[in-house]
């Protein structure tokens, strides 16, 4: 099984978000970055498990600038064989998807893995874009996968339940919680990662289809109204008359 795992870099969850002077962008000073958790914990680990069970290879792919190499090396330390970075900055989802599709086409992978979404912009769209560009099957928000030869039985999360679907390679899939258990890289993995190939390739021409015009911070929350625990009738009254939610 030849597999490609697409990973993105996102600000760490606890990052305080601040805007620049004219609100045209974020203030990136002091932001800590991590590998997108869905890519790292679920997509990458399940790909490695499949390789361990049945052989094959796991290649990491990131579309981004040289600063992203640290995140890519972490993926190699967790166990991927090699990595590709398409050298680009920004561009938006469809631009990124076109870069991934070009690499996927060249490499001829059986499974292309994604996270269910990036935790910064919550797009949940790049995987489906790549599948469409390659004209292959895509299963989004998958929480379980079993391979049987070239056929996979996949569970995907739907509103209030699950759907079980069958797909054949080649296919694209986005991983959600349940797909695998997070792996922490060990010392040996970290040492080996330094010697694994990380190939940097140039981006293909593609237009940016979207751009962020401006950012805003959400309105500050008004102070909490504390309610006397002995008086739950008062809370019900406020929910009914003031908040108008019941």
């Amino acid at each position: 099984m030849k597999m490609l795992v697409c990973v993105s870099k996102t600000p760490e969850t606890t990052t305080k978000i601040q805007l620049n002077g004219d609100h045209s962008d974020l203030d990136y000073s002091g932001v800590n970055y991590i590998m997108n958790p869905y890519d790292e914990w679920y997509a990458l680990v399940r790909a490695l498990e499949l390789k361990e069970a049945a052989g094959g290879s796991v290649t990491i792919l990131n579309v981004g600038p040289a600063d992203n190499d640290a995140v890519i090396r972490k993926g190699l330390a967790i166990g991927a064989d090699d990595a590709i970075r398409v050298d680009a900055t920004g561009g938006g989802s469809l631009f990124i998807a076109k870069q991934i599709a070009a690499q996927a086409k060249a490499g001829g992978y059986d499974i292309i893995w994604f996270g269910k979404e990036t935790i910064d912009y919550n797009g949940s769209e790049v995987g489906a874009m790549v599948a469409e560009l390659l004209d292959v099957a895509y299963v989004g928000e998958a929480s379980h996968l079993e391979m049987n030869g070239t056929t996979a039985t996949v569970t995907r999360d739907i509103e209030g339940g699950i759907e079980i679907v069958e797909v054949s390679t080649p296919f694209a899939i986005s991983a959600a919680k349940g797909m695998a258990e997070q792996r922490i890289p060990n010392m040996r993995g970290i040492m080996m990662a330094k010697r694994k190939p990380l190939n940097v390739v140039a981006a293909e021409d593609a237009a940016a289809t979207t751009s962020v015009k401006s950012y805003e911070l959400p309105p500050a929350k008004t102070a909490v109204k504390l309610i006397d625990p002995e008086n739950m009738e008062e809370l019900v009254r406020l929910l009914h008359e003031e908040a108008k939610v019941i």
Partner: peptide, 14 residues
């Protein structure tokens, strides 16, 4: 809403 609700982005479609 982006960054887990910590900001709102106004996104242009071109």
């Amino acid at each position: 809403s982006v960054f887990s609700g910590k900001a709102i982005a106004d996104v242009s479609i071109n």
